[in-house]
Computed example of a mutant assay.
Amino acid sequence: MVSKPDFLSGGSQDHFRPELQVESPEGELHLRFYIPSRQEFALPATGIREVMELSPDRITPIPNASPLLLGTLNLRGRVIWVADLGQFLGEATALNTDRAEIPVIAIEEQDTIVGLAVEEIGGMDWLDVQHLMLTTHVPDTMAPFLRGEWLIDAKTNKSLRLLDQMAILRSARWAG
């Protein structure tokens, strides 16, 4: 029988040193980001293929395409569509593409990949989906793409809304 070496189990003295104990995160890892109207959203990290900051000239406009689409992008030899997520969700404010870099979140399901252009990336956080509440006060254009929301600040009624990436990828809105 082989026993564990000390470096795998930690020394017995480490057991009582709280600064060496690793906290286990609660919930699931999510990417937080903003659309141009400054509303904050999240997507589960498990469905995100890649997050990029791209120069606008790397997105090739496509004539006569849906107004939601900014164009196409070559992602490691594969051409994918890039959409203005705010416009896709029904926001009136279009994404400012006249800047040095545009954050793009590539989401994936099986063989489908779509790039979602956003205003700003907020970071990664562990969020507990068991604390999700039903979304309130959302436009009808946005409601089908939301799984719920977390209340961030009760005084200002600020919330973080969780998007349903499957609903986004499978939407008939892309055909428009």
Rank of each mutant, 00 (worst) to 15 (best):
Arg38Phe: 05
Arg99His: 06
Thr135Ile: 02
Ser3Cys: 09
Trp126Asn: 15
Glu119Met: 00
Phe33Lys: 04
Gly47Val: 11
Glu91Ile: 00
Ala143Glu: 07
Ser171Asn: 13
Asp140Lys: 09
Gln130Gly: 08
Thr72His: 03
Arg38Tyr: 06
Glu149Pro: 04
Ser12Cys: 06
Ala42His: 00
Met133Cys: 07
Ala83Ser: 04
Ile59Ser: 04
Leu163Trp: 00
Gln130Cys: 04
Val104Gly: 03
Pro18Met: 08
Pro139Ser: 11
Phe41Ala: 05
Arg17Glu: 14
Leu8Arg: 12
Leu163Arg: 06
Asp125His: 13
Pro44Gly: 10
Trp81Thr: 02
Gln110Asn: 13
Phe145Arg: 01
Arg76Gln: 00
Leu162Asn: 10
Leu162Tyr: 15
Ile59Trp: 01
Met142Leu: 09
Thr136Tyr: 11
Leu127Glu: 09
Arg17Gln: 14
Gly176Tyr: 09
Phe41Lys: 05
Gly115Gln: 02
Arg38His: 05
Pro25Gln: 15
Arg147Leu: 14
Asp98Glu: 11
His15Trp: 06
Ile152Trp: 08
Met142Thr: 03
Ile168Thr: 08
Glu149Ile: 00
Thr60Trp: 09
Leu68Asp: 14
Ser66Gly: 02
Gly10Lys: 07
Ala94His: 11
Arg78Ile: 02
Met166Tyr: 11
Ser171Lys: 14
Glu91Trp: 05
Ile59Asn: 01
Pro44Asp: 06
Thr112Asn: 12
Arg32Cys: 02
Ala106Glu: 07
Arg99Gln: 07
Glu50Val: 01
Leu69Tyr: 13
Asp57Pro: 03
Phe16Leu: 12
Val79Arg: 00
Trp150Arg: 09
Phe16Gln: 14
Glu40Leu: 12
Ala117Gly: 01
Leu160Arg: 12
Leu73Arg: 00
Met166Phe: 05
Asp128Ala: 13
Ser171Ile: 07
Pro144Arg: 03
Pro67Leu: 10
Pro18Tyr: 13
Glu28Ile: 02
Thr72Glu: 10
Gly77Leu: 04
Glu28Asn: 13
Gly122Val: 05
Glu53Thr: 01
Glu108Leu: 04
Leu160Met: 15
Asp111Glu: 10
Glu23Gln: 10
Ala154Leu: 06
Leu127His: 11
Pro5Cys: 09
Arg170Thr: 14
Asp140Tyr: 04
Glu149Gly: 03
Thr93Val: 03
Leu169Arg: 06
Asp111Arg: 08
Ala42Ile: 00
Leu75His: 15
Val51Ile: 03
Pro63Tyr: 00
Ser37Trp: 08
Thr141His: 09
Leu8Phe: 01
Asn64Ser: 10
Met142Phe: 04
Met52Thr: 04
Ala65Cys: 12
Arg170Glu: 15
Arg147Ile: 09
Leu70Pro: 00
Thr46Trp: 12
Leu29Arg: 13
Arg58Glu: 13
